Simulated assay, not measured.
Amino acid sequence: MKSFEVVAGIIVCNGRVLCMQRGESKYEYVSRKFEFPGGKVEAGERNSEALIRELKEEMDIDVQISEDDYFMTVHYDYPDFSITMHSFICKVDDCRFTMMEHSDFRWLGKKELMQLDWAPADVPIVEALEDSEVLDGERV
């Protein structure tokens, strides 16, 4: 089974979290599901560098993050591949971005996140965000 190391950005603007919806996929279990944006880590890249690059490529959004913004790692085995996903909190002042690879998006407060149909690997992050104080004190 193929295994991938990936990064995901928990993009926060004005106290809301950016939730991106995938388009159609050859894998039914991730098709049209919501996810945190990001992508694969390339050889020699630090996780934070990979996330900055992926968000720029996929959304034309600039984020300033470091390893200190690390939130959590999820290991998930899908039927056809497995991923190790490292997530980071990315606070931005400008909520604008260009949607180039996803089909839809939502800005939601942390208590609203579970109302979406998330990709299975992202669910543990959503659950941890609900229980976390990381967004407390943010404007909503």
Rank of each mutant, 00 (worst) to 15 (best):
M59R: 00
Q21A: 08
R22K: 07
S132G: 09
W107C: 14
I83L: 14
S31E: 09
V126F: 11
E35P: 03
Y78G: 09
D77P: 10
K91N: 08
P120Q: 04
M100S: 11
D60P: 05
K40Y: 12
M72V: 08
M99G: 04
E133Y: 00
R22V: 00
G137W: 10
A128Y: 05
D93I: 01
S82K: 04
A121W: 02
Y27T: 00
D122R: 02
K111D: 15
E127S: 08
T73S: 12
G23F: 00
D117V: 00
A8Y: 01
D77T: 03
V123A: 06
T73Y: 03
L135E: 06
S82R: 06
D69G: 13
D80L: 01
V41T: 12
A43W: 02
A121D: 06
E67K: 03
K40M: 10
P120C: 04
R16M: 07
A43C: 08
R32L: 00
C95M: 13
G137M: 06
M100F: 09
K2F: 02
L129E: 05
G109R: 07
V140C: 15
E67P: 12
V140E: 15
V134H: 10
T98P: 09
E57R: 05
G15S: 09
K2T: 09
H86P: 07
D136M: 04
C90R: 02
C95E: 15
L18G: 13
N14A: 08
R53G: 07
D62Q: 09
V126C: 13
I125T: 13
E57T: 03
Y70S: 08
V41N: 10
E24L: 04
S66N: 06
F105Q: 12
E58T: 12
S3Y: 06
G38L: 09
D104K: 07
E54T: 02
M20G: 10
G38C: 11
F34E: 07
S25Y: 00
Y70V: 04
D93F: 13
H75Q: 14
F105W: 15
V140D: 15
D104T: 00
I83W: 02
D93C: 11
P37L: 02
F88H: 09
C95R: 13
L108F: 08
E54N: 13
E45H: 10
W118K: 00
F34L: 05
F71G: 10
E133V: 02
V30F: 01
L129S: 07
L55Y: 03
E130M: 08
Q21T: 07
E54V: 02
M85E: 14
W107S: 13
Y29G: 05
